[in-house]
Simulated assay, not measured.
Amino acid sequence: MNIDLSGKRALVTASTGGIGYSIAKGLAQAGATLVLNGRGNKSVSEAVTRLQAEVPGASVSGVAADLSNAQGADALVSAAGMVDVLVNNAGIYGMQDFFETGDDVWDQYWATNVMSGVRLSRALLPAMVEKGWGRVVFISSESGLNIPVDMIHYGLSKTAQLALSRGLAKRVAGSGVTVNSVLPGPTLSDGVAGMLQAEVECTGKPVEEVAADFVKEHRPTSIIQRVATTEEVANMVVYVCSPQASATTGAALRVDGGVVDDIV
């Protein structure tokens, strides 16, 4: 399958590293013009330079904006301009017991994980509809279906993304614009690697092996019995953003290694 996104302009939020960067790289390799985003000027500038080096000839720009508030979302929309592809990847996560999670944490997760996508979609979708073509993707999580007991606040925000994605798909029905969610499972992102670093240093095992042990202990329903790579998640996203995926909309597409024990 030859995915060609030449002439398409794509915005990927939180794309200076991890899954977001791999998505941006995959879209650039398919020919799209990329707008990267992160919270700091330094990380954004470094990501732009890295992507241009890894995908020679790619057209890449970057915008530093904190999407946990309306001002940051407005600044990103203003700087990015009209786009054909929007990947809502911005999000935060962390373990915390429900009874110790205060309103401030709930507000923070809702603002970052949910409202960032609400604001950007509200601003950028109408032009896609008018043009008759567009792709919006929310990077949710298997935690949106399989709510983790130690991250209920996170799981709820990821479930909300699924509802938002499905609702928007129905809202723009028949327009030529598709809206989908992609649900990664345990993935060896920069954040996960950092979380496992102490165990890597203690055991001397490679991070991939430590990560596989983590999956077997904490996500025993995993069928692949390992973490996914960020590239494996990006492959699904790039496909969903392609012209070939024109009949896929309103879907929750899992790249979870089979963690969610469901045949539907």
Rank of each mutant, 00 (worst) to 15 (best):
H218P: 00
K8P: 06
A79L: 07
L162Q: 13
D213E: 15
L183W: 04
E100T: 14
M128K: 04
R254Y: 05
L188P: 02
M128A: 10
V55W: 10
S121W: 07
V77H: 08
V233E: 00
R39W: 03
L86P: 02
V12I: 15
V264P: 00
Q197H: 07
T187Q: 02
L76R: 00
D84G: 10
V12F: 07
D66M: 11
A247G: 07
V172M: 06
A212N: 08
V118H: 13
N37Q: 12
S22C: 09
V105I: 15
V60R: 04
S141P: 11
V105E: 14
A90H: 01
C202K: 04
V114L: 13
K8C: 11
A212C: 01
Y109L: 15
L27S: 05
V44N: 09
D104M: 05
R119Q: 06
K170H: 10
G20H: 07
A24Q: 05
A211H: 04
E208K: 07
F99W: 11
A111S: 15
A73S: 15
A47C: 05
A64D: 12
A32F: 10
S246N: 12
A47S: 09
V77D: 04
I19Q: 12
L5M: 08
V172Y: 08
E217V: 11
A65D: 09
L124G: 01
D66F: 14
I223Y: 00
I23N: 03
V192S: 03
Y21C: 09
V12T: 07
N235T: 12
V48F: 02
P184V: 01
A64C: 08
V264C: 11
V172L: 10
S141I: 13
L11A: 10
V259Y: 01
T249S: 13
S222V: 11
D104P: 01
E100P: 01
T13I: 13
A64W: 01
K25S: 11
D74E: 15
H153K: 05
S68I: 06
C241T: 10
T101E: 13
A252F: 11
V137R: 00
C202H: 09
N37E: 03
V233I: 15
A24L: 05
E199M: 09
A251P: 07
G174W: 12
Y93G: 14
P148G: 10
P186S: 09
T230Y: 00
R219P: 02
Q52R: 15
S22R: 14
A79Q: 14
N88Q: 06
Y93R: 11
I223W: 00
Q244S: 12
T203K: 03
P243H: 10
S6L: 02
A73W: 10
M151H: 04
S61L: 08
R39M: 00
R50F: 04
K158P: 03
I3T: 11
L162S: 01
K205F: 04
R254Q: 07
T187M: 02
A28H: 04
S116T: 10
I19A: 09
V149Y: 12
S59A: 14
A247Y: 14
